[in-house]
Nucleic acid binder design. Structure first.
Lengths: 112, 112
DNA sequence: TTGACATATAACCCATTTGGTATATATTGG
DNA sequence: CCAATATATACCAAATGGGTTATATGTCAA
């Protein structure tokens, strides 16, 4: 039933909205310290550290030490796994239109 | 922290490997009864019924009654939500290559 | 050196998830 | 009608998840 250890499961890692928010911030802003990531969130520092650990263990983030801070960065490779899985269903909405089409058109244009 | 009721959360719905397997089967094979879906799985019928209920409540499946059976079908629209979210990170792997490129090429070709 | 800062870990709590078995509720065939 | 079939629900136990506070650890600054 278990395809991989729970701690390493990308789908479980992104199932939590706080972790998705963390990933988005890291994607938008690049390396950030725990305190910086913590700042807008309504939860405690240990809670954030735990989320970051889960992201690390899922292979979605890495960290390096800089002085007394620890900087986290996104490691998006394994999100491809999710992308590829969702793409299995793409034919269902593809025929109808539309936003995916727009997305792909944009992509195709950008690739030229 | 909770963007929607847990039972309706698409990310939670796809966090379970059994439910992902169910969605893939429904996508590949179309409408299927609970017994058909149950057959390859190593869990009990009530467990499958419960997974199907979660998929229904997440808006990822629908069911209709046919005699004494109940046929489930995929309802993929809300997977777009996941697709769009993951696409936020696409620029990270896009530059490097490759499988996404191939995917998009295939798509672009198919769209012409 | 020492105190403040930054982060991680431990210990704990409570809610939720997921599985099981037993049972209820259709529905159908004979 | 009755037995068998198909599915859902109730209920329970074990595990997990996500939060908290308290504390350990490491680093910097004065």
């Amino acid at each position: 039933m278990r395809a991989e250890a729970p701690a390493e499961d990308v789908y479980l890692a992104i199932a939590d909205p706080t972790r998705r928010a963390l990933l988005l911030r890291l994607a938008e802003e690049g390396e950030r310290s725990v305190n910086e990531l913590l700042e807008p969130l309504p939860i405690s520092q240990p809670a954030v550290s735990k989320h970051l650990r889960i992201l690390r263990e899922a292979g979605l983030a890495r960290s390096r030490k800089q002085g007394r801070r620890r900087l986290y960065a996104i490691e998006p490779a394994r999100l491809r796994q999710v992308f590829d899985w969702v793409a299995h269903f793409e034919r269902f909405w593809d025929a109808k239109l539309d936003a995916l089409g727009d997305y792909l058109d944009t992509k195709a244009a950008r690739r030229n």
